[in-house]
Design a protein around this nucleic acid. Sequence first.
DNA 1: CTGTTAGCGCATTCAT
DNA 2: ATGAATGCGCTAACAG
Lengths: 335, 335
Amino acid sequence: MARETVTIRNVAQRANVSTATVSRVLNNDPRVRYETKQVVLEAMESLGYKLNVVARSLKTSRTHTIGVLAPDLAGDFFMFIAESMNRELTLHGYSLVVSTSRDSEEEEAKRIRHLAERLVDGIVLIPVGSSSAYLSQVSALHIPIVFVDRALEGFESDQVLVDNEGGAYEAVCALIGEGHRRIGFLGGKPEVTTAKERFAGYCRAMEEAGLEIEQKYVRFGHPTLPFGYRTMEEIIKDPDSPDTWFIVNLFAHLGATSYLVTEGGERAQHITFAAFDEMPYSPLLRYCRYAVQQPIAEMGKAAANLIIDRIEGKGPPEPQILRFRTRLIQHPLVR
Amino acid sequence: MARETVTIRNVAQRANVSTATVSRVLNNDPRVRYETKQVVLEAMESLGYKLNVVARSLKTSRTHTIGVLAPDLAGDFFMFIAESMNRELTLHGYSLVVSTSRDSEEEEAKRIRHLAERLVDGIVLIPVGSSSAYLSQVSALHIPIVFVDRALEGFESDQVLVDNEGGAYEAVCALIGEGHRRIGFLGGKPEVTTAKERFAGYCRAMEEAGLEIEQKYVRFGHPTLPFGYRTMEEIIKDPDSPDTWFIVNLFAHLGATSYLVTEGGERAQHITFAAFDEMPYSPLLRYCRYAVQQPIAEMGKAAANLIIDRIEGKGPPEPQILRFRTRLIQHPLVR
DNA sequence: CTGTTAGCGCATTCAT
DNA sequence: ATGAATGCGCTAACAG
């Protein structure tokens, strides 16, 4: 039963029609007589015909493949995005090819080019940098791009964002509402839009409450696990530092919590956090009173639909900017 | 500057050679005179030539794409595998397309077929089930498959596994060494090989130490977060249950810990776990004295190399079964 | 070493 | 409503 590859030519012969007709059946072209269509379908069935998507792509120059480029596959935020994107894309007959920029703008540019050469129909980009160095390259590709999480400023394109300012504001207000007065900011670099917006929300909440923002306890940095750990170490060793902190993202939060759990000593008992990002294990993060939950699943789905619409020319011509609301989660503080 | 697509034909004309020569340059065929090659390269450069991989694929029927199929993209284990696979694949000029079986064997079969139709050169499969229902289908595809985490029994193929028995044994021994005498087993369904092997390791450790395995405290189930949560609830409500547990995987572990943290009450203080899987946030899992770390990065890399070798016909003809050793991590128990 | 030629499997004019 | 013919961009014999 050696199965040679069956082509539309074989099907055509078997059905006594031309390849054009077979192709029409394949593409649900209405101008095929019902009867003929049945014959073709039967021929396909009996021959075990499988469409060759590569050949089709060569003709149509569309691959039904979306590329997604993220700083890191293993980051929780990203994988939930990918998960929900993938679900939606599958529904619409698209595949997802993944690629990572490994936290390097150079790599990001390289991978984008590579994706484009692979002839993906569109790219979903979770950018690593804030630079716009390679923007011209990107736009020269003439391929739809959707930005998720943050956009490169000055670049016109579809975007899926969250209300960073509002989410941070809400969280800090909640802390203040519980009587916290001195609240520090542990966060990302201010040149990154997400961090900047979250910082703005923090500031607004503090100012509205008439609380002082102590510059000494506004700590910027690349918000990774080690950053959170080291910074929290410094904070704990400073007896005058606040007990309450707003933390800009999950990684810094994990790092800070790790330090407190392992080395925090007595004082850790009095620490309280509010932080961006909610994960299945967030209830286990011991000092986290409030978490700002991003609607990650919806965001992934939205990104998928934006890129599909763009590809299929369905959307409005102007860039779509979707900004999702966050949700504040309160955790019981079990000490 | 309207850029029409530049083909090898254009390059050939510009360089005054045939398309065959251009193609040879493209494929690093040694039988091209150095000088000629330079001319071709220059022509490519000046025309802004980009190889069309789809056309190449149509010819070679190889796409340089690997499909990976996992139960769930958002599981940490999987993402780390994908991350390291992707790294290795990129190095070798392959792309990674991801797909999920959503914990359904039916879906798994469907996605595999779909991947195959997409003409991926190989598939890395983290199987969801233990059934071999669709094995014939899979093998009929004549496409290399590498199994990761566990294999479908009776199916000849490359596999990347860990020493589940040994890892569990080591962990339980460590607990016993610290004086624990009554140790329960919280784990996956015994028909799944990984769970079975881990259970075997648990049993061996207990038996060698002359300790009784209390059937009442061997709890099998689909090891998810809710399962861990609910089962731990039952356990805590049973005053006679052991304080010490071996937990079969991360999800059950997270669930059990969640219950203890939020509802565990006084008794939670006395609970001790050893569990499979180590994550960046594992130190935060409050009751986890020992974690069995799988060398996930190496496993992903190994899977990538196995599938590449298979595709490129480099490996030995017989199936390769790689079984990695685990590493026991001790955590300080901070209460 | 290089050129000629013939498809890979499909979609798509342009006829009829 | 259907067929014949053409070519998407590239690789791979086969010649020379």
